[in-house]
Computed example of a mutant assay.
Amino acid sequence: MWFKNIQVFKCSSPLALNTEQLQEQLNEHRFQPCKSIETYRLGWVFPAATSDQLLHASNKKILLCLRRQEKVIPAAVVNEILKERVEELELKDHRKVGRKEKLNIKEDILTEMTPKAFAKSSYTWGYVDLANQWVIVDAASSKKAEEFLDLLRQTIGSLPVIPLNTEVTPTTLMTHWLNDISSRPAGLALNGQCELRSDLDEGSVIRCKQQELDAEDVLAHLQAGKQVTKLAIDWQERVQCILNEDLSIKRLRFGDDLLEEAQDSYADEDPMTRLDADFTLMTLELQRFLHELIEWLGGEHQSH
């Protein structure tokens, strides 16, 4: 359950949730398998196998899990059938099949194949942090995060959130860190990976992996006007990740000490005990890290 990527959203107006009421609302949007003619379905599922609720609450944080089931229809198969049908029509009617007619034929093929297609599922985790008024989603893409937020919005009726925004842009801060060793906060280390981009030339991108980022050849790119858009960082040997220019966090990993602490906190393999321990420790650590990150970035942006 440990998150691997996070996108942080801030409530633009106070959000209060009652867990009993929320459980009833979640039940109304509980996951149901795709019907034969549906291409996909979304819904909430139990966070643990032994759970009897569609949420897990701890320290004013509410964990949810979205399941997406979609029919798998290989594009190559559809295109092959489409090609065969178009060729048959053109041969039979002695004419050229137009683009619009091809699209109609393709839609017919998809309608025929959908009831027979295999279904696959994917899961998106996220939690509402009522104390900090955040919604944090384990998603590598904004599209996947928005899917989670949209279903939560439908579930509770309203969800006034915006992407977390700070006074200083991540690009400005990461460039400063790379350019000036003394500017790096205590407990922060660079992890040998970054992406540099020039504002003047969108096609000019330098990607460094497993390199000494303080080397002269890397710093020369900064002197030439490039800025840091991605940077691998290590915070207190407890959180490692790649910080992106949009404040999203990718390839999130937690330190061995923290993972061992989680394992030591439960003596058996009961899924709910394990979930509670993992969720509590992960969210507390993320809270500490995010507070420091926001402070480094000059605090949350205040709209005037």
Rank of each mutant, 00 (worst) to 15 (best):
D199F: 00
D129P: 05
R274L: 08
K250Q: 14
L55R: 08
L55M: 13
Y40E: 10
W177S: 02
W296P: 11
G298N: 08
L213G: 00
E146Q: 13
L284W: 00
I294K: 00
N132G: 04
L63K: 02
E202H: 08
I233T: 09
D199T: 00
R153W: 03
Q25C: 07
L89P: 00
L103R: 14
F289P: 00
H304E: 09
D270R: 15
H304R: 15
N18F: 11
E88T: 10
F279L: 12
T169K: 09
M1Q: 14
L91M: 10
R238C: 04
D201M: 02
I105S: 01
G43Y: 02
L222G: 02
E300I: 07
Q302P: 04
T280H: 04
H304Q: 10
K71N: 09
P33Y: 04
D52Q: 14
L219M: 14
Y127V: 00
D256H: 14
T172E: 13
E80C: 06
A131T: 11
H56T: 04
G225E: 02
G225V: 05
A75Y: 03
L281M: 15
I6T: 01
L190S: 03
L247K: 02
S183C: 10
L17S: 12
Q223W: 10
M174Q: 05
A48S: 15
L297R: 00
L164P: 07
H291P: 01
V205S: 08
L149G: 02
N132P: 02
N132H: 15
I156Q: 07
Q53Y: 09
P47L: 12
S142M: 08
Q133R: 15
A48G: 09
R99C: 04
T19C: 15
Q210S: 12
E84S: 09
R274Q: 12
L219N: 15
V239M: 04
S303Y: 09
I242P: 01
L213W: 01
T283N: 09
L196G: 03
L219D: 08
P47G: 10
L89R: 05
Q302L: 10
E167M: 14
F3C: 06
T111C: 11
L110V: 14
V135A: 03
L281A: 07
E167T: 14
R68V: 12
A186S: 14
C65M: 08
P170D: 06
E245W: 03
L290S: 04
L243E: 04
L15E: 01
E70F: 00
V72L: 13
E147D: 11
L173M: 14
R288N: 11
E195A: 13
R207E: 15
K116F: 04
N27R: 10
C11K: 04
E20Q: 14
M113I: 07
R288H: 11
Q21R: 15
R184D: 06
V205L: 15
Q25L: 11
K96H: 12
S51F: 10
F31D: 06
R68D: 14
A49P: 02
D199K: 03
R67T: 03
T172M: 08
L178N: 01
S182R: 15
P163D: 10
T166Q: 12
E80W: 03
K100W: 07
D138R: 00
S51V: 07
S303N: 06
V78F: 05
P74M: 13
K92S: 14
L281W: 07
R85T: 01
L82T: 01
D264L: 12
L22Y: 06
P163H: 08
T229C: 07
L252C: 11
